[in-house]
Computed example of a mutant assay.
Amino acid sequence: MRLIFTSLVSHGHLYPLLPLAVAARDAGHDVLFATGDDLRPVVEKAGLATESAGFGMREAFASFFGPDARPRPNDGPPELFYPVIAQVFGNVLPRRFVADLTPLFERYRPDLVVYESGNMGGAIAARLAGIPAIGHGFGRVSPGDVVDVITGRLAEYAQEVGFDGVELPSFGDPVLDICPETVQSPDFLAEAKRVPLRPVGWAEPGDLPAGVLGRDKSRPLIYLTLGTAFGDEGVLKRAIGGLARLEADVVVAAGPTVDPAQLGDVPANVRVEAWVPQAELLPHVDLVVHHGGSGTTLGAFGEALPQLVLPQGADQFTNAEAVVAAGVGGQLIGDGITEDAIFEGSRKLLADDAVRAAARALADEVAAMPSPAEVAKRLPEFAG
Rank of each mutant, 00 (worst) to 15 (best):
E51L: 14
T228Q: 09
R70Y: 10
G12P: 11
D259G: 06
D187P: 02
A24R: 05
P380I: 04
L189G: 00
A23C: 10
A53D: 04
F5D: 02
T257D: 11
F188Y: 10
V250W: 10
E233W: 06
I131P: 02
A341F: 13
R153C: 01
V114E: 03
G130M: 14
T50A: 08
L176A: 02
A351F: 12
L213E: 15
G162P: 00
E167G: 07
A261K: 15
P370Y: 03
V235F: 15
A129E: 06
S142W: 05
V161Y: 01
F89S: 13
L236C: 11
P260A: 08
V270T: 08
G135K: 04
P103V: 12
V375D: 02
S63N: 14
S294W: 13
R360H: 04
V324R: 15
M1E: 01
I333M: 09
P199W: 09
K217W: 00
A358V: 00
G54P: 04
V276R: 09
D364H: 03
V147F: 09
L213P: 00
P78T: 09
S371V: 12
R127V: 01
I85T: 11
D164Q: 09
L17K: 09
K348E: 15
G144Y: 01
D187M: 10
P267D: 13
G293P: 09
A326H: 09
G118F: 13
H291R: 13
R219H: 05
D315M: 06
E191Y: 11
L18Y: 14
R245Y: 06
G231C: 05
I337T: 12
G345F: 14
C179V: 00
E156V: 03
G231D: 08
F138W: 14
R219E: 06
I4V: 11
D26Y: 07
L213Q: 15
T225I: 04
Q312D: 04
L93F: 08
V147I: 13
P256Y: 07
P73W: 11
P169W: 08
R58W: 07
A46P: 05
A244W: 10
F188K: 07
A367H: 05
L287M: 10
R360W: 02
E247N: 12
D26T: 10
L379S: 02
A304Q: 01
W202A: 05
L128Y: 01
T257I: 09
A253W: 07
R215E: 01
P19R: 07
P199G: 06
A125E: 00
Y223A: 13
R194D: 00
R25T: 07
K377T: 05
A192R: 12
A244K: 13
Q331G: 10
Q307W: 03
N91G: 10
V43G: 03
V92H: 11
A354N: 02
F105E: 11
L176I: 00
F138Q: 14
A62F: 07
A268D: 15
L298K: 05
K237F: 14
E204Y: 05
R107T: 12
P256D: 08
S52R: 15
L17Q: 15
R70F: 08
V88G: 08
L14H: 12
A383H: 08
V272G: 04
R245K: 13
G242T: 15
D68R: 14
Q87S: 15
A27Q: 06
V183Y: 03
G295L: 10
V258F: 03
L246C: 06
A363R: 04
